[in-house]
Design a protein around this nucleic acid. Structure first.
Length: 226
DNA sequence: GCGACAG
DNA sequence: ATCTTGTCGC
């Protein structure tokens, strides 16, 4: 098995970004949506080249999941990937992509983590605060916390806890016999809503539609840019 | 000191 | 994230 290795990051940069992160954290609000969403957006980024980032937004009508619009924005990569500080690398370009969306979604499903983060500020929460819009996340890999493997059947859920005993997220088996998804709220959303919408957006695939399509087009557009 | 480490 | 073909299992 392979072990991930992360090159040492400049401690000065880490300190700086971590502090900004703490400031944003004070604005996070966890609560249910005021109304059932009519539109939901999927968001994801890819890197056509090591120095270029491409961010995609897919707008879907909910709960029918019909694609209403898909947009993207390409920009320069200025920050390295540092575990726990992913948002500073991707959020700037994602925000520019968001500006191209004419119609605003009622909630955004982000590829990455929400509050299931070492400092409760994953990219979903980060984007939610900066946009002041409801967000939650769907991640394919765990970042922090412990959990018991949910049953192998579609729909099984188990809590993701951290050492303080809190529940920053849930681990969801979106399809039979596939690796589970890690879901948590970002901003202006709560766990129940995040989990409910994740399940409601399934269409037979492991990934719920918003994220699956954003993921797909992030790859399609990337090819076109070569 | 030894792991863990989103995308 | 990214580099990459075929292949095993349901």
């Amino acid at each position: 098995m392979y072990r991930p290795y992360h090159p040492p990051a400049d401690p000065r940069i880490v300190r700086e970004l971590t502090q900004v992160q703490q400031e944003l954290r004070a604005h996070v609000r966890l609560l249910p949506l005021s109304a059932e969403p009519a539109f939901i957006a999927g968001c994801d980024s890819s890197f056509p080249t090591p120095e270029t980032i491409l961010s995609v937004f897919v707008l879907l009508r909910f709960p029918l999941l019909e694609v209403v619009k898909k947009i993207y924005h390409v920009g320069p990569v200025e920050v390295p990937y540092i575990p726990g500080l992913l948002s500073f690398r991707e959020a700037p370009n994602v925000l520019k992509a968001y500006e191209k969306l004419q119609q605003q979604p009622d909630i955004i499903m982000v590829d990455g983590h929400g509050i299931a983060h070492p400092r409760r500020m994953g990219i979903a929460a980060h984007l939610g605060v900066l946009l002041d819009r409801p967000t939650f996340n769907v991640a394919k890999q765990k970042l922090t916390g412990v959990y018991q493997e949910p049953a192998i059947t579609r729909g099984s859920i188990s809590p993701l806890t951290d050492k303080s005993g809190e529940l920053p997220g849930e681990v969801i088996r979106s399809k039979d016999k596939v690796r589970p998804l890690f879901v948590s709220p970002g901003h202006r959303c709560d766990q129940a809503t995040a989990t409910r919408l994740t399940l409601a957006c399934r269409r037979g695939y492991k990934l719920p539609e918003p994220t699956r399509l954003a993921d797909h087009w992030a790859g399609e557009f990337k090819q076109e840019l070569r």
